[in-house]
Amino acid sequence: MAEESTTALTERGVRTRERLIQAAREVFEEMGFLDTRVRHITERAGAAYGTFYTYFDSKEAVLREVADRIFADMTGRDRLPLGPDASPRDRVSRANRSYYTAYLRNARMMAIIEQVATFNEEFREMRRRHRASATGRSARAIRRWQSEGLVDAGLDADLAARALAAMVDHSLYLRLVQGEGDDTERFLDTLDALTVRALGLDRLT
């Protein structure tokens, strides 16, 4: 019955599963993935040891659930308000700040997911899949700006989106996981400026 669909669970079962997921995230963040044991998760959730295996096959399985939710949060639509007449530069700034805020909420787990992805192919694939979702949206924005004559039509939109995402991702990892830097606004303004200049949007008045 492990990893049973929530549609097949009772209301009590759904609550128990959610408690286990929340407990797993808390324990992973405190102890790291490698040192966490299933009993740590069940103790935190206030559940019997065997109850865990009603919903999940392993600690990897519950980490997948936690990671999926984090990536959904990280790559979801921008939540910061922006008017319909916003310029491309405004949209770049909004996207970077929205992503920064989401990364900040999830920094501890992102460090763990990145670590697990170095030795677990399934998590590498999950990371690629969720990154592709975000970069695909960026590539569509670049193509739209190309059609409007705002970005060089010869630029490969997909490669540009991936390169810019890698820059932002690694910069956020160094800042929020490794603790490099302390001036948030200067940091975000620099990411905005590099993105805008890379796309040639700095030519706009």
Score class of each variant (00 low, 15 high):
44 R>G: 01
20 L>A: 05
16 T>E: 12
16 T>H: 14
39 R>G: 05
48 A>W: 02
8 A>F: 10
42 T>Q: 01
38 V>Y: 08
34 L>S: 04
43 E>T: 07
40 H>R: 11
35 D>V: 01
13 G>S: 11
12 R>W: 13
16 T>F: 09
30 E>T: 12
10 T>E: 06
15 R>E: 14
24 A>E: 02
17 R>S: 08
41 I>V: 15
23 A>S: 10
28 F>T: 03
42 T>N: 02
7 T>R: 14
11 E>Q: 12
41 I>D: 06
20 L>H: 05
18 E>V: 08
20 L>M: 08
34 L>E: 10
46 G>W: 03
40 H>V: 09
15 R>L: 11
20 L>F: 03
43 E>N: 08
36 T>G: 07
30 E>C: 10
25 R>G: 03
41 I>L: 05
14 V>F: 09
33 F>W: 13
29 E>Q: 11
10 T>D: 06
35 D>L: 14
37 R>E: 15
8 A>M: 12
19 R>P: 00
32 G>H: 12
18 E>L: 08
48 A>T: 02
49 Y>V: 09
47 A>N: 00
44 R>S: 08
45 A>Y: 03
39 R>I: 15
24 A>N: 04
32 G>E: 09
46 G>R: 04
19 R>V: 01
40 H>D: 15
41 I>S: 07
45 A>G: 08
45 A>D: 04
13 G>E: 07
44 R>K: 14
41 I>C: 02
45 A>K: 05
14 V>W: 10
19 R>I: 01
32 G>D: 12
27 V>Q: 01
15 R>F: 12
33 F>S: 11
13 G>F: 08
15 R>C: 06
12 R>V: 12
34 L>R: 08
46 G>E: 02
16 T>Y: 11
39 R>Q: 15
27 V>L: 00
19 R>C: 02
39 R>A: 14
21 I>M: 02
11 E>L: 06
28 F>D: 01
39 R>P: 03
29 E>L: 03
34 L>I: 02
44 R>N: 06
36 T>L: 11
33 F>L: 12
28 F>N: 00
13 G>L: 05
19 R>W: 04
46 G>Y: 01
33 F>T: 12
30 E>K: 13
41 I>R: 04
10 T>K: 05
48 A>N: 05
21 I>Y: 02
17 R>M: 11
47 A>F: 02
24 A>Y: 03
7 T>N: 06
24 A>S: 09
9 L>R: 15
49 Y>C: 07
14 V>M: 09
42 T>A: 01
35 D>K: 14
9 L>F: 11
24 A>F: 00
37 R>V: 11
37 R>I: 07
22 Q>D: 14
45 A>M: 08
21 I>L: 08
43 E>D: 10
41 I>H: 03
10 T>P: 03
40 H>L: 10
24 A>V: 01
9 L>I: 11
9 L>H: 14
49 Y>P: 05
19 R>M: 01
16 T>M: 09
33 F>D: 13
45 A>I: 05
38 V>P: 05
9 L>P: 06
14 V>S: 11
27 V>T: 00
9 L>A: 12
11 E>V: 12
12 R>P: 02
42 T>G: 00
20 L>Q: 03
30 E>M: 09
48 A>F: 03
26 E>L: 01
27 V>Y: 00
12 R>F: 11
31 M>G: 05
43 E>K: 06
13 G>Q: 10
20 L>D: 04
